[in-house]
């Protein structure tokens, strides 16, 4: 890498001579080192799934969540530095609350993503802070139907039908593109999400992992909750089976 040792990469407030901000690019590296997170948008809902890398077998399963709830109807999953993810989700909750206080109605996801984008961008401006080392998937179902956004460390955000961030995002994106997302039922989307996470997990390189999935849709009353146990188990079993046939 040419950036190293030039001195142009030591602060978010410094451009390199060719107009890059290396600190933001390095923040993206932190994202790439983390377990994969994906989001699927289908006709009547959204599904989020993360590959939670387990660094010790002493961890209590299911206790250490990586998918957060921002409002009754808004979900957030991050890839990157876990603690940054918590910080950003706290900010997202504050923004959602603030929107409710101002307008007395549930915040549309666009508004929350917009405000989070501004917040994250502010951390790319100054030498006194570092950028967020996370990419964030946001999902919702509201009166306008489902929506999915991704906020990057640079502060940009885009809407998606299917999103993937973290280590396995390339392979996950390829798999997502193969799906006919608008035609899937929410339950089918859960099965596909589990399959993709199992597929992108690199057994050779990585330690163990735990699958975590949540959804928003008619079956959850358009509230954000973790996927019900029976469906989760079914999806996980199918994912493991699919992996064997894939190989």
């Amino acid at each position: 890498m040419t950036s190293i040792g030039t001195g142009y990469d030591l602060s978010a407030s410094t451009y390199s001579p060719d107009g890059r901000i290396f600190q933001v690019e390095y923040a993206n590296k932190a994202v790439e080192n983390s377990g994969t997170a994906i989001g699927l948008k289908v006709k009547d809902g959204i599904v989020l799934a993360v590959e939670k890398l387990v660094h010790s077998k002493l961890l209590v399963p299911e206790a250490n969540r990586r998918i957060q709830t921002i409002d009754r109807h808004i979900a957030l999953a991050t890839a990157g530095l876990l603690a940054d993810g918590r910080q950003l989700s706290n900010r997202a909750r504050d923004e959602a609350t603030n929107y409710r206080e101002t307008y007395n109605s549930p915040p549309p996801l666009k508004a929350v993503a917009d405000r989070l984008g501004l917040y994250v961008q502010a951390y790319t401006l100054y030498s006194s802070v570092r950028p967020f080392g996370i990419s964030t998937i946001l999902g919702t179902v509201d009166q306008d139907g489902p929506a999915l956004f991704v906020v990057e460390p640079s502060g940009v955000f885009f809407g998606y039908n299917g999103a993937a961030v973290g280590k396995g995002r390339q392979l996950a994106k390829t798999e997502l593109e193969k799906l006919k997302l608008p035609e899937l039922s929410l339950r089918e989307a859960v099965i596909e999400a589990a399959r993709i996470i199992y597929l992108v997990h690199d057994d050779a390189k990585e330690k163990e992992f735990e699958l975590e999935m949540s959804w928003i849709g008619p079956e959850s009353n358009n509230l954000h909750v973790h996927v019900p146990k029976d469906l989760f188990d079914e999806a996980e079993a199918k994912a493991k089976a699919a992996l064997e046939t894939f190989e």
Partner: peptide, 15 residues
């Protein structure tokens, strides 16, 4: 009611 609603959401989002 708005206070309690806010509180309720805060509690729900902790999950």
């Amino acid at each position: 009611q708005t206070l309690l609603n806010e509180l309720d959401i805060e509690e729900y989002t902790a999950q």
